[in-house]
Amino acid sequence: MSDRIFGAVGLLIAIVYAWATLQIEESFLSDAVGPKTFPLGIAVILGLASIAIALKPDSEPEWPSLGRLAEILAAVVVMVLYAEFLPVVGFLIATAFATTYLTWRLDTPPLQAVLIGTLTSGGIYVVFKLILGLSLASGPFGF
């Protein structure tokens, strides 16, 4: 069943993608091939491959337990929050929090997780910003 759902989702993506492709406005400069041909090709083959998966599914995969799924979902939420807060609070703070959370949920004692998170974030900051002079998002305190 999992593979059939996967195939159906793939087919849906292919159809929406093809529809979005047809909405592209061509410029007057377009050549014979144009900007739509390649995406349409992708959509067609993606659709065919998805149908093949839906019609001939593999044996049922082993799904993680509900608790594990919740953990994965929480990790995704944390990564999204990380991306959202990175420009607001700056690299150092955002990375320290994200790393601490992930390490803690992967079975590290809380105190060690905080330590690892802070050190990882600080280490990357020192190497990239201070030594190599690359730019990292800075927060309200200038770091």
């Binding site: 993506i13 400069l29 144009g34 900007p35």
Partner: peptide, 20 residues
């Protein structure tokens, strides 16, 4: 194909038309 799909986002390198 999903990789190619992600790669088509942005300006079309040939005609400069914005896609997706």
């Amino acid at each position: 194909l999903v990789g190619l799909l992600i790669n088509t986002v942005g300006l079309d390198p040939i005609s400069g038309v914005s896609r997706f």
